[in-house]
Design a protein around this nucleic acid. Structure first.
Length: 423
RNA sequence: GGAGAGAUGGCAGAGUGGUCGAAUGCGGUGGUCUUGAAAACCACUGUACCGCAAGGUACCGGGGGUUCGAAUCCCUCUCUCUCCGCCA
């Protein structure tokens, strides 16, 4: 959520920048400012009346103390009138505040100046491509075939017990999965992140804080009996650790990592995109989250990008980094780098990480602040990224490393798997 | 699931109708003292909104009510804790 005063002071700039996200903000900003002007004058009027009411109450108190209780009737009468008036003012005020809120949550975050124009993922900008695309023999297979051949994943069993998009990992598939989780967490911890195991369900306030509500309500599984949401990513619980907090400046940057399963309804997905591990309702992910001082957040974003790169290089996976265009950038992000690995069995690039700076957009919702040099509270910046999402890494590893004799495990993982080939 | 207790500032913990945005302690910041540190002492130390400022307003879990006046009384919701039962 953007701050009203920011919108007031930078109206034209905001309108221009939001065009990159294909969002026309011209009228909504005016509406917000008008409503806010309204709010101010209502509040001013109400505050004056309340101030008078407060002093009346004090006067009456003094009169009673002096034994002049009979002289209070006029004051009581005035107070009753004030109460009448403030009651309606207060209700108009809260209506107005609600209207402002409803407008504000519709305005997306402002894109960073590096974000390219564009309508869809076709317009994303490739900024780096690393590694050789493996040349596999003609009898190469996609991971779903390999997973069934080597008994790594039982998709049918998942269908039976839950439904499509809920795979059952078996045997060395399960071990590989567990190894990847440990490996990713260790890499993140080595880079200075603190490990957490958060809850897998969050309340409404948390889902709002990171921007899942109200924008993406239908994407989450909702446990209605208890009004809790299954997390779509660890970003939600972990970033919400800091909701309603004022951070000590010396604690910047705050670096958290967490492994969690992620639950997504993925309503509307279909076709070859969802085959095998490509798109699941439940999947595993190791997330990194940082809370940073605004002046350092973009430097931090680059550091996070380099960190994710180093993991992919160690796993010997060919990857590319994309800078998302305005049309593909999420509602809440200012700048996002997507990582895609090349999965040679299906000859496709698969997104395995998305690293974003949200600037103060989440912080404003979260009320996540720090005190500046002058002792004034300011909003922090939040960032997060996947390091990394498991299923597509799994798919790419299996596809790229297939040989006639089995699937080879990259060196970096062998100490975790305790095997170097799946036969 | 049954019974009970509670929710106050960064934390602990007073406050049961008026001068309470809230005692006190701890913590934190600044200062005095000291070669330095500790100790001691002094001062400051919640958030948000309006206002150039002075200042004003709101907030003692959320919402509503009683009253001239509510942290304090009433209703309601939510959450937490303790005991019992069940259970990983």
């Amino acid at each position: 959520m953007l701050q009203i005063n920011f919108l007031r002071d930078n109206k034209q700039e905001v309108i221009e920048k939001l065009k990159v996200k294909n969002f026309d903000a011209s009228s909504i900003i005016d509406e917000v400012i008008t409503l806010d002007d309204n709010r101010k004058s209502i509040q001013q009027e109400s505050d004056e009346l309340l101030s008078r009411a407060n002093s009346i109450a004090k006067e009456i108190g003094v009169l009673f103390k002096e034994g002049k209780g009979t002289e209070t009737n006029d004051l009581k009468e005035e107070s009753a009138q004030i109460k009448e008036k403030t009651k309606s003012l207060q209700s108009t005020l809260s209506d107005t505040e609600h209207q402002i809120w409803e407008k504000l949550v519709q305005i997306p975050n402002i894109p960073h100046f590096l974000v390219p124009n564009g309508k869809s993922d076709a317009d994303n900008e490739t900024i780096k491509e690393v590694g050789e695309i493996p040349q596999l023999p003609d009898n190469k297979k996609p991971h779903w075939d390999l997973c069934s051949q080597y008994k790594l994943i039982d998709f049918e069993l998942g269908n039976k017990i839950t439904g499509a998009g809920f795979p059952v990992y078996t045997n060395k598939g399960a071990k590989l999965q567990r190894s990847l989780i440990s490996y990713f967490l260790d890499k993140n911890i080595d880079d200075g992140y603190e490990e957490f195991q958060p809850p897998y369900m969050v309340n409404e306030d948390s889902a709002f804080g990171t921007g899942q509500l109200p924008d993406k309500e239908g994407q989450m599984y909702h446990v209605t009996a208890d009004n809790l949401y299954l997390i779509p990513t660890a970003e939600v619980p972990v970033t919400n650790f800091f909701r309603d907090e004022i951070i000590n400046k010396a604690d910047f940057p705050i670096k958290c990592t967490a492994y969690t399963p992620c639950f997504r309804r993925e309503a509307g997905s279909y076709g070859k995109d969802v085959r095998g591990l490509n798109r699941l309702h439940q999947f595993d992910k190791v997330e990194i989250v940082q809370v940073q001082h605004p002046k350092d957040s973009y430097e931090t974003l680059d550091v996070m990008v380099n960190h994710v790169s180093s993991i992919l290089e160690e796993l010997e996976l060919p990857y590319r980094i994309l800078r998302l265009c305005g049309g593909d950038l999420s509602f809440t992000a200012s700048l996002t780098y997507d990582f895609e690995v090349y999965s040679a069995g299906q000859d496709r690039w698969l997104e395995v990480s998305s690293v974003s700076n949200f600037e103060s957009y989440q912080s404003n919702r979260l009320k996540l602040r720090y005190k500046d040099e002058n002792g004034k509270t300011q909003l922090c910046h939040t960032l997060n990224g996947s390091a990394l999402a498991l299923p597509r890494i799994f798919a790419a590893l299996v596809e790229n490393n297939q040989t006639d004799n089995g699937i080879k495990i990259p060196k970096a993982l062998q100490e975790y798997t305790s095997f170097d080939i799946i036969e």
